[in-house]
Amino acid sequence: MPSEMSKPTIKIIGLPERSSPDISSEAFETIGKILKNLKGFNLDCYKDKCIKRRISIRIRATHSNTAEAYCELLLNNESELELLLKVLTIHVSHFFRNPPTFEKLKNDIFPELFTRCNNEGRRDLRLWSVGCAGGEEPYTLALILNDTFGAEMKVVNVSILATDVDAGTLEVARTAAYNEDRLSEMSESIKTRYFDRIESKYHLLPEIKKLVTFRQGDLYDVSTYVMSDLILCRNVLIYFERSQQEKILEGFANVLPSGGILVLGKSETLVGNSRRRFKTICPVERIYQVL
């Protein structure tokens, strides 16, 4: 969205002060308008309960007496607007999160995808990490591919796209410098070969960084979805209302080819019409294939 935008005219509906940061429907709507007009962030498709809980964190942190007072603060304080956006879009991740999922990808899914490319005479394999946060997930894919499928990658060009709604988070991901706790699930061999330790940070080597392209993107807009052979969307759908989950899953099915792979989080599953468009190939790891 444009970087320069005039301040929207938004009516703040006043209510009697409360001792707790309860968020009325009017205040919630106002916060949504502020975020959409000033930051292009759309609250409409997210679960109200989850979002209100995160907004309440900032209301308490700023010592705002009411949600309405917090609305006034948002309109006049760019720093607080940025802080709220970070709270709403925060993702906690680390390399090789849920190791069995990545073992399944390495041992079964990737070999199948490379074989399909060769059988079809294709020379491109497209992977998409959705809600990539600090980059740990897409970089994990890059590490596995570089470490195990070097020969295949000389024949098939692999591209890894990583998207997130928060631009600031993406900038952090591009630096690829991590605290040691983010590498806790990683083997010592991988850590030694692919990271340089500089003071307290582990810096990913350029040869791995260059395999991943980061781009800002919002799942709310299905028109921006990219053609992919494998999509990882883990622990993202849980923040969306069911109707939006259905829309997102339909969007994934539309950009995956027949035989394309979708990986969801352990607490997520197919809903609505998407259950007729995918078949389950690993229920434990929530891995599905387009029919």
Results as ranks from 00 to 15, higher is better:
199 E>A: 11
258 S>Q: 14
27 A>E: 04
202 Y>E: 04
117 C>S: 05
30 T>Y: 05
191 K>A: 14
273 N>S: 12
232 L>V: 04
199 E>R: 11
96 F>M: 13
196 D>E: 10
254 N>Q: 08
267 S>T: 05
55 I>F: 15
112 E>F: 15
133 A>C: 10
189 S>Y: 14
209 K>I: 01
198 I>S: 06
180 E>N: 10
218 D>K: 00
269 T>F: 13
50 C>W: 08
224 T>R: 09
238 I>F: 09
89 T>R: 01
209 K>N: 11
50 C>L: 15
46 Y>V: 00
26 E>I: 09
256 L>C: 03
199 E>N: 09
133 A>F: 11
120 E>M: 13
227 M>L: 12
260 G>W: 12
10 I>C: 12
4 E>R: 15
81 L>R: 11
167 A>N: 03
226 V>R: 03
218 D>C: 00
153 M>I: 06
284 V>C: 13
275 R>F: 15
34 I>W: 05
126 R>E: 08
158 V>C: 02
113 L>P: 01
83 L>P: 13
21 P>G: 01
116 R>E: 03
230 L>Y: 05
6 S>N: 11
224 T>Q: 08
216 Q>V: 00
74 L>N: 02
183 L>H: 03
95 F>K: 13
44 D>N: 07
285 E>N: 08
29 E>V: 11
58 R>V: 04
200 S>W: 12
38 L>D: 14
180 E>W: 06
246 E>N: 03
256 L>N: 02
237 L>G: 00
279 K>F: 14
60 R>Q: 09
30 T>A: 07
36 K>T: 02
99 P>F: 07
198 I>W: 11
255 V>H: 06
201 K>N: 08
143 L>R: 00
7 K>H: 08
127 L>T: 07
22 D>V: 11
256 L>M: 00
200 S>R: 15
227 M>P: 07
257 P>C: 02
85 L>D: 06
17 E>V: 06
150 G>P: 04
83 L>T: 05
252 F>S: 00
197 R>D: 06
192 T>K: 13
194 Y>C: 12
243 S>W: 13
75 L>Y: 08
154 K>D: 12
180 E>Q: 07
124 D>F: 09
18 R>V: 09
203 H>M: 12
281 I>R: 13
254 N>W: 15
217 G>N: 08
204 L>Y: 11
71 C>D: 08
72 E>W: 10
289 Q>W: 07
137 E>L: 07
50 C>D: 09
24 S>P: 10
200 S>G: 08
157 N>S: 09
253 A>T: 06
282 C>V: 06
190 I>T: 14
250 E>C: 08
